[in-house]
Write a protein that binds this DNA or RNA. Structure first.
Lengths: 330, 330
DNA sequence: ATCGCAAATGTAACCGGTTACAGCAAGAGC
DNA sequence: GCTCTTGCTGTAACCGGTTACATTTGCGAT
C-alpha cells in the first residue's frame, strides 16, 4: 500500500488539507479538539509527511551536502565523523557524494541542488576550473583544503608548509640528515604544499631534498620503503605526507630487519587514530580533521542563519612526537 | 541571485517549459537546432535542475537512506565505506542519519520519507517495537544485524553464535583454559549472541564461563584489562566482543609488563583494518562489513528494479588467527 | 492550392506539501 | 436585533519540475 498523503488525512478527518497541515505543525490557530482529532486520524492512517514535498514549498531541506574524495583510509572517515556529529547535534541530515578520484565527481554536485541547504566540499586534488564551474551560485559552501577559486566562500586551509617544515626541524633536531620525503600525488594541494615546506627546511639546513612520489595509499609507502632498502647510502629518516604511507613503510622496514627509529626514523602526517597503535607509535602532525569537519558544519549553519562568512581559517597542525622518531624507547 | 528555474529558461528561449524539459532530458522529439538553442540558453543562465522538484514529480530520488548507530570506531565507518562504494558505482546518493545511541534516533527515519528510494538500517541495539513502529511501510528496507521484527524484509544476519564458539575452540586448541569474555552492551543483539556462543563452547569443554560487560568502546577494554590484572588466578585469554575493546586491553596488558600471547592471549571480533597493525597483530573474526554494506546496496537496487527479496542472508565470520593468540612469534 | 498525417510544441494537471487570503460563524457592544 | 471584531477553517496559488493530451506546424501527396 502506498503512503497516505495529507489529502487522505484531510478526507478521513473531514477537514481541509490546510487544517491538517496547521494541526500537525502546531500552528496555534486550530481548535484544540479538532487538532487532536486530526492527529489521531493521521496516526491511524500511519501518515508521515513527505519531506521532499515539504522542502520544495519551504525552500528548506535541513540537509547538508558533503563532497569528499573517497572514504578509503581513516582520514576522510574521520572528517565525515566530525561532520556527522555536529550535523546530527543540529538536526541536520547529510547527503553524501564522493568523487572517487575521478574529476567527473564534481558533476554530482548538480544532483545536490534542491536537496540541500548548504555544501561542504573537501577536494585537495580537484582541478580549480572544474571546481569553480560546478560551484553552485546560491548555496552556502564551505571549502576545506580546496584550490583557491574564490574569495567569497568560507574556507579551511591547513598550513601544510609550516607543518612540513616543523617536521623536518624535528627530524634534524634528533640528528637526522638524509631525510627523504614521500609525497602525495602531484596536483594535490596538500601534497604540493608539504613538499614545499619539506624542501624549504632541508635547504635551510644545507641538506639536499629528495622526494619520492606516492599517492597517499599504504601500498605506495610499501613500495617507497622497498626502494629505499636498495640504496647504498640509506636514508636515516622517511617523512611521509600521510600516515598510511608512513605505516606501510614502517612495516616494510621492520620486516627487513631494520629497527625504527634507531636505523631509520619514520614520520607521517594527519594523526589518524591508527597512528597511536602501531609499534613503534608513529610521529605525525595532528590535523584534527574531525574537529574541522564539525566546525565546517557550524559555519554552514551560521550562514544559513544569516551571518556572512568569507574568512579563510588557517589550521596549524601540531606535532605529535612519538616513538617512531625519538630514539631510546625509554 | 537566486537560481534560474525551468520557467526562466523557457522565457529566455521563447519556448514552453515542456520543451525545455524535453530538450534537456534528451526526449528525442525536439527539433535538433531548437534543442541546441535551449541548451545554450540554459547554460548561459547557469540553469541547474532542482533535484528536489524533479524527484517529487518522478517519485524517484536516486538516493538511499542509511541509518547507523554512529561513526565512532572503524566498524561502522567501514560499513559506510562499503555502502558508499557500491552506491556511487550505481549513481546513487546517500542520505545519512545516525542514531547516536539514543533510541530517539529512529524518529529521524521519518525525515527520510520522500527523500530516498530505499533504506539500509544497521541497528543491533535498537528496541524491536521501536524499530517496527518506525519502519516505513512502502520503502524497500534492508536490515543488517537488526532485531527480528519482520519476515518481509531482506536481511543480513551475522552468525555470531557460531563465530564466538569457533573463537573459543581456537583458544582452547592453543591450550587456554581460563578464557574470559568481554561482551558488548546488554540489549545489543550481536553482543548477546556472542555471549551465547562463548558460553556454549566453554560449557561444552567443561570450562566455566566468565563474562565481563563492556560497551564496544576502547575504554571498556582498558577497564576490563585492569580488572583482570588484579585477579589472584589470572585469566590466560581474553576474548573481546569487538576489536577496539581487545586493543584497549592489549595495550594495558603490555604496559603492565605482561607479554601477549605468552602470558595472556587476546582476541577480538570484526577484523577492523587496525587489527593487522597492532603489535602483536590481533586475532579476530573477520565479518567483512564493507562487503555486506555493498551487498546491501545491491539488494536495495534489485528491489527497486522490481525483484522481490525477503531472504535472510547469513554471514559466517572467518577466523583470522594472528600473533595475539598463537604463541611462538616465529 | 488542399488535404492528411506525423512530428514538434504548448497547455495544463499533477507530484505533496505550505500559506496568503477569503469566508464564515460566534460573541461583544450598542 | 444589528454591526463589528475576532478567530477558526477552507480555497486556491505556489514551490519546480514532468508528461498526458491538445494543438499547431511542416511536408509530401493529390
Amino acid at each position: 500500500m502506498a503512503h497516505a498523503t495529507i489529502r487522505d488525512v484531510a478526507r478521513a478527518a473531514n477537514v481541509s488539507i490546510a487544517t491538517v497541515s496547521r494541526a500537525l505543525n502546531g500552528h496555534g490557530n486550530v481548535r484544540a479538539n479538532l487538532r487532536e482529532h486530526v492527529q489521531s486520524v493521521a496516526a491511524a492512517l500511519g501518515y508521515v509527511p513527505h519531506t521532499g514535498a515539504r522542502s520544495l514549498s519551504l525552500a528548506r531541506t535541513n540537509a547538508i551536502g558533503v563532497m569528499l574524495p573517497d572514504l578509503h583510509g581513516e582520514f576522510y572517515s574521520e572528517a565525515l565523523r566530525g561532520i556527522d556529529a555536529e550535523a546530527s547535534a543540529r538536526g541536520l541530515q547529510l547527503l553524501l557524494s564522493n568523487m572517487h578520484g575521478d574529476q567527473r565527481g564534481t558533476e554530482t554536485l548538480r544532483f545536490m541542488r534542491g536537496r540541500v541547504d548548504a555544501l561542504i566540499i573537501m577536494a585537495p586534488d580537484i582541478d580549480p576550473e572544474r571546481l569553480l564551474a560546478h560551484l553552485p551560485a546560491s548555496l552556502p559552501t564551505v571549502l576545506i583544503s580546496c584550490p583557491d577559486v574564490s574569495a567569497d566562500h568560507p574556507q579551511f586551509r591547513i598550513d601544510n608548509v609550516a607543518a612540513a617544515d616543523a617536521m623536518v626541524e624535528h627530524l634534524v633536531a634528533s640528528g637526522r640528515r638524509r631525510i627523504v620525503h614521500l609525497s602525495g600525488p602531484r596536483g594535490n594541494r596538500d601534497a604540493e604544499e608539504r613538499i614545499a615546506g619539506y624542501s624549504a627546511a632541508m635547504t635551510r639546513h644545507g641538506l639536499s631534498p629528495r622526494v619520492l612520489t606516492g599517492d597517499f595509499e599504504e601500498e605506495s609507502g610499501t613500495a617507497a620503503a622497498q626502494a629505499l632498502l636498495g640504496d647504498t647510502e640509506r636514508a636515516d629518516a622517511l617523512f611521509a605526507a600521510n600516515d598510511m604511507m608512513a605505516i606501510g613503510a614502517l612495516v616494510v622496514f621492520q620486516r627487513a630487519g631494520l629497527s625504527v627509529p634507531e636505523d631509520i626514523a619514520v614520520a607521517g602526517f594527519d594523526d589518524i587514530p591508527l597512528a597511536r597503535f602501531v609499534t613503534p607509535a608513529l610521529t605525525t602532525m595532528r590535523v584534527g580533521i574531525a574537529e574541522i569537519g564539525a566546525e565546517a558544519v557550524s559555519r554552514a549553519a551560521a550562514i544559513l542563519a544569516g551571518e556572512s562568512d568569507t574568512e579563510i581559517r588557517w589550521v596549524a597542525p601540531q606535532i605529535k612526537a612519538r616513538a617512531s622518531t625519538i630514539g631510546g624507547a625509554a
